[in-house]
Amino acid sequence: MAQATLPLSETAAKPPRRYAGLAVPILIFGVFAMVPVLAQFGTESFLLSLVGRVMIFAIAALALDLLVGYGALVSFGHAAFIGIGAYAVGILSKHGVEEAMISLPVALAASALFAWLTGIVCLRTRGVYFIMITLAFGQMAFFTASSLAPYGGDDGLTIASRNTLFGVPLLENDRFFYYLIFTCMLGTYLLCRAIVNSRFGRVFRGAMENETRMATLGFEVYRFRLAAYVIAGAIGGMSGFLLANATEFVSPAYMSWQRSGELLIMVILGGIGTLNGAIVGTAAFLLLEEWLSGLTEHWKMIFGPFLVLMVLFLRGGLSGLADRIFGSRSRD
């Protein structure tokens, strides 16, 4: 049973909502767009960097949801792509290349290449074995980064300044940088939506539900999965590019397996196979972490049981909860 494809959760099995589903993303993106306006009245730089961080991880979580929620490909090494994207920025910057128009394509290409090479091996396996083999490649990336002595090794690498855009230091402006991240998240969301609803996406989703049927229909399932895996990897690289610019620091810790686990938790917390859930889950996870850790040093003793109760009583994560509350309305 363990080798079989993972069973579908209730949310993942539902057909995608077409028009009624627009309200939630408009609300989500509306809130994110409004943050800088509201932040003027509070501690602006803190809020912008906190919410910016949420959006950066939401980008990676969206890509992960594409794999987990629509392909049952539970990747436990997704942080590696973030790390590779971040290291692309760090290493180029160390050699004096600080132009985003160079480092972003390099970050995307490097993470896509890593996804393609590892995907060829990983996608031979199923279910739990897939989880573990993606973990293995994630760990290899982690240890490789730790051994990069010229680039800081274990200690990581400080980046002198944020990337320039067409030679202009636009990213140094916090508000500009915030909206850059926002645009990237919106673009990622629209791309993932488009993929899910395309012919490609239908084959990919079909393969999750019944691989044999898809193969019988004449689709080479493996190639569809590999393509999706490479896309998700490249998106992770973009997230890493933004993260390196936001923190002006890269370290092997970006690729640790704990980070990959947290990304999975974010996606599951929001509800897999919804895309909206990936963003909501990331925001819930990071903001709850921020809030609780401000309350008490032992915040994990609250956060842990919260996760357990969530699973016991809320099926389908936060999206499942929202569906149940607004259930009658959101179904057209």
């Binding site: 069973p7 959760s9 842990g304």
Partner: peptide
Amino acid sequence: HHLDHVIATFGIILF
């Protein structure tokens, strides 16, 4: 779902 196991037992680890 296996992912439910992952998130619940992860919560127990944190705790």
